[in-house]
Design a protein around this nucleic acid. Structure first.
Lengths: 132, 132
DNA sequence: GATGACGTTGACGTTAACGTCAAGCTAAAT
DNA sequence: ATTTAGCTTGACGTTAACGTCAACGTCATC
């Protein structure tokens, strides 16, 4: 089974980015499309990585840090020692993600408190108005 | 009770930012310190806002979008209609935060699956080694 | 009265992450 | 054969978010 591949235009359309962006990611070694002649051919792996890249960007990570934890996602046929190192890196990345998630949760709780307060205020005002 | 105030240096030390940063935030209207002579005096409100700013940055938000949802945090003695509008904006902001949190959760789940897989792999290898 | 700590206002420099041309190739359609 | 669509490689431009440097003011201190 020959894997599905994509032209630069196809990927751009699917993920709403420009060719410039994908070429830039290639230059920074976040993607590594094959060449057919001089045209770029993106594999399913590239597509998967692009998904991860864009998600990482939404998290506010830099391309460089994204590049590093992309490496987590293609562990080959590694030695035991390498797997152990991998596990450490993975655990670190988990911590980073967890921290950010928790902080988001805090922000949400705070905002929700404010919202609840304002809603109560509106209720009270509504009651006062009804009592006129 | 006269509220506590801060010099630019104090805030910088506390939050590990440079004076340039705080002046920049003032110029972009994220902070609005008072002047004493020509020196900036930061109030407790400025300090609170700075906290929110830095948190927002960790979330990957732009200063401009941070500036907007900072407005959520100082609702004055508003009219009912304004409070209703406020509630809409707040709800939107909650959606944004929730979305990002959920996406972070997804990323964590994925990574955890990988970790579990690798851990199992290591266990199997350990068992194989012990059987030699 | 000079020195040093802390602050000020410009103004220009820098880095990341692309955008925006210009000039050219290449295969398919007119 | 030429237009069109999609791709290529430079190379310079842009925006956000500051950094850096120069030149200056203002106290407290030595």
């Amino acid at each position: 089974m020959t894997e599905k591949t994509f032209s630069i235009g196809e990927l751009c359309a699917e993920f709403d980015v420009t060719p410039r962006t994908l070429r830039f990611y290639e230059q920074r070694e976040l993607l590594s499309p094959i060449r057919e002649g001089q045209k770029r051919i993106f594999t399913a792996r590239d597509r998967a990585r692009l998904k991860l890249i864009l998600r990482g960007k939404r998290f506010g990570f830099s391309l460089e840090s994204i590049r590093q934890w992309l490496e987590l996602y293609d562990l080959g046929d590694s030695q035991v020692t390498q797997l152990t190192t991998w596990l450490e890196h993975a655990a670190q990345q988990m911590d980073t993600l967890r921290e950010q998630r928790d902080e988001l949760q805090d922000a949400m709780t705070e905002l929700q408190d404010l919202i609840t307060y304002v809603e109560r205020d509106l209720e009270v005002r509504g009651a006062a108005e009804a009592a006129e």
